[in-house]
């Protein structure tokens, strides 16, 4: 490690427009007694400061495992990173020592989890847990840390923060707990936030509040945001670009407007067609046939081929690479052109 690189990372927002985080050809597998589950098979994406990348996928698509690998909280074993790089401000985090990574985690990259009740410790007050960030990372006194905790609770618009700082997680509602999680992520002023299904456990009216808050904070502080979700509605509301994952691969990458206007992968097309609309009562829903694959037995060729209406022989033998199909958008489908033109096979 040269000093040159170190100074580069310390300055905030080094080169304008340069990606903050780059995931490059990442492969992760889980070696279990029953066999090897290939959770991530060559995922690449990047996020710049102020940008929101939505990673969209169903359960088992590898979206959360990618996030855990970035944070360095993947359970290893059984998880093994077999290939790839994760560069944060140009430096490969996978080659860093444990101590270096700890300096990035929380300070530079923070994470918001889905289930706030299980992510918070039930036996400590929320003020104590928020203050911990400052005591551990910044060496603040208890008193100062508590004052900071109140400040943070104000930031995420928790009413009567002064009185509630000594309350315990169970005394807060689901939406308020998720705000506390956001406050904790914001504590050290990170440059990148990874939010893993941050509103899935919340009701719609509360979801709208929480997503609004997250988007406001991101804009104010010009942070990068990786939003992991399965909800096509939430994505359409906040994302700048989208990566759609299926069976551990990115099958489509596009800007949010392009993707919703005209998907370039049959899986995305199927997903968009299968959600009912709020503004009109449709006829039969389009249903993608079959089931997501077992990661221990991913189909040969394109992983989506058994469920795909476009599938031909070539799909069963050759893995389609993620290639550019239009300026700024990629699709991993042999028939991406046909999908884009809307000619179902």
């Amino acid at each position: 490690m040269t000093t040159n690189q170190l100074t580069k990372t310390d300055a905030k927002g080094t080169v304008p427009g340069a990606p903050l985080l780059e995931v490059d050809n990442l492969h992760v597998e889980f070696r279990t007694r029953d066999g090897v589950a290939k959770a991530i098979n060559g995922v690449s994406y990047s996020v710049a400061a102020g940008e929101t990348l939505a990673v969209l996928g169903e359960s088992g698509s590898g979206k959360s495992v990618t996030a855990q690998t970035i944070m360095g909280i993947l359970d290893m074993p059984p998880g093994v990173i077999t290939k790839g790089e994760i560069r944060f401000q140009g430096r490969d985090m996978l080659k860093m020592s444990g101590e270096e990574r700890r300096k990035i985690r929380g300070n530079k990259i923070a994470m918001i989890f889905q289930d706030a009740l299980s992510a918070l410790n039930p036996v400590y007050s929320v003020g104590f847990q928020l203050g911990e960030m400052f005591r551990v990372h910044k060496g603040m006194s208890r008193k100062d840390a508590k004052a900071k905790a109140i400040e943070l609770m104000d930031l995420v618009k928790i009413p009567a923060a002064k009185q509630r700082v000594s309350d315990y997680p169970h005394q807060f509602s689901g939406g308020m707990r998720q705000r506390i999680m956001i406050a904790m992520a914001m504590a050290l002023d990170p440059e990148l936030i990874i939010a893993d299904e941050p509103t899935t456990a919340l009701d719609v009216t509360v979801q709208a509040q929480v997503m609004d808050l997250l988007a406001d904070l991101q804009r104010e502080r010009n942070m990068g945001l990786i939003l992991i979700t399965h909800d096509l509605g939430v994505v359409a509301d906040v994302a700048d670009k989208i990566a759609v994952m299926y069976a551990g691969r990115i099958v489509e990458e596009a800007s949010v407007h392009d993707l919703y206007q005209r998907p370039a992968h049959p899986y995305t097309e199927g997903l968009l067609a299968s959600i009912p609309r709020l503004d009109l009562k449709g006829q039969d829903l389009y249903a993608i046939k079959g089931l997501p694959p077992n990661l221990m037995r991913i189909p040969t060729g394109c992983a989506f081929n058994p469920r795909c209406p476009y599938a031909q022989d070539v799909c069963r033998t050759d893995v389609p690479p993620l290639h550019e199909v239009a300026p700024g958008r990629g699709s991993a489908c042999h028939f991406a052109k046909e999908v884009l033109d809307g000619n179902r096979g």
Partner: peptide, 10 residues
């Protein structure tokens, strides 16, 4: 109804 996210970014 207003809180439901619309799956259309337009």
């Amino acid at each position: 109804l207003s809180a439901v996210p619309v799956p259309d970014p337009t």
